[in-house]
Design a binder for these strands. Structure first.
Ligand SMILES: [Mn+2]
Ligand SMILES: [Mn+2]
Ligand SMILES: [Zn+2]
Ligand SMILES: [Zn+2]
Lengths: 138, 138
DNA sequence: CACTACTTTAGAATCATTATAAATTCTTAA
DNA sequence: TTAAGAATTTATAATGATTCTAAAGTAGTG
């Protein structure tokens, strides 16, 4: 249960004015212990439920993109029909539960060292991400 | 330079009738040595260039999705704004060249064994894919 | 308070993809 | 070979996500 000043500071520090709408979005995104994986649609729904005031979709998009640009969110592409944002901006991997369409974090230290044997001349590795698709064992 | 009967057989064996359009699409997709990574837009352009007869976009989508369903193509999601199809249907990984938006195959044997230490109870691993983003070293 | 720059908003525009339904083509059993 | 039925293609409309626009509202500053 952070208080608003944390969010206001977070917004200010990234060059965004702390408006009612943005503070509300911050509460939903960042007022929690665990990583939050969400689609824009998820988020819009939660705003509609948690908040008496309506927030336009354009504002949701604008704010999320600003946070992404500032490094407060990462975007994750799993498949063509769904894109997620992730409040965990560390370098990390994911499980994707195909039965429930749920993303689960896999921290860097939960995956053994990844050895990329093939090299591409003149190119440098920017990131290495693992996606593990899972489904019910039965 | 395969001859058409190869494609016709490929189509037939997967329950698709060998129409002019599908055979032409097969030529573009499968008449080559190396893996082909493409977007629907890429493919539609190539059809327009290589083929005197027009093929509707709906047919391109239908055929690609049928091939995907039959296991002749894989779909790869790199980021929200581009989805690729891949003629390499083996279990494999990718480099993504951020400078050129180009995908490069990384075969399974070009990546050391991947050790997923975290387990999810009641779930079975369906696939493990690595995406390595690269850019010019300069 | 008054001014300015930033922000929000509804609605329009765009773009990829999917759906529809009529016209065409393929298959196969006379 | 042909006729009938099934599958396919096609143009076009519909959908859905995202982005754009421009007008109305709000925050920061002095
Ligand atoms: Mn985006
Ligand atoms: Mn698709
Ligand atoms: Zn995550
Ligand atoms: Zn590939």
């Amino acid at each position: 249960m952070s208080n608003n000043s944390v969010f206001i500071e977070k917004l200010r520090s990234s060059g965004l004015r702390p408006t009612r709408q943005r503070v509300q979005i911050c509460k939903i995104l960042f007022d929690r212990q665990k990583t939050f994986h969400f689609s824009i649609k998820d988020l819009a729904k939660m705003i509609a439920n948690d908040f008496s005031e309506k927030v336009s979709l354009a504002t949701v998009y604008n704010t999320i993109h600003a946070f992404k640009k500032r490094g407060y969110l990462k975007e994750i592409s799993i498949n063509s029909d769904k894109t997620y944002f992730d409040t965990n901006t560390s370098n990390h991997h994911h499980f994707f539960n195909e039965s429930t369409n749920e993303l689960i974090d896999l921290e860097n230290n939960e995956v053994g060292k990844i050895n990329i044997k093939k090299k591409i001349p003149g190119k440098k590795i920017k990131s290495v991400e693992v996606l593990v698709k899972i489904a019910n064992s039965n």
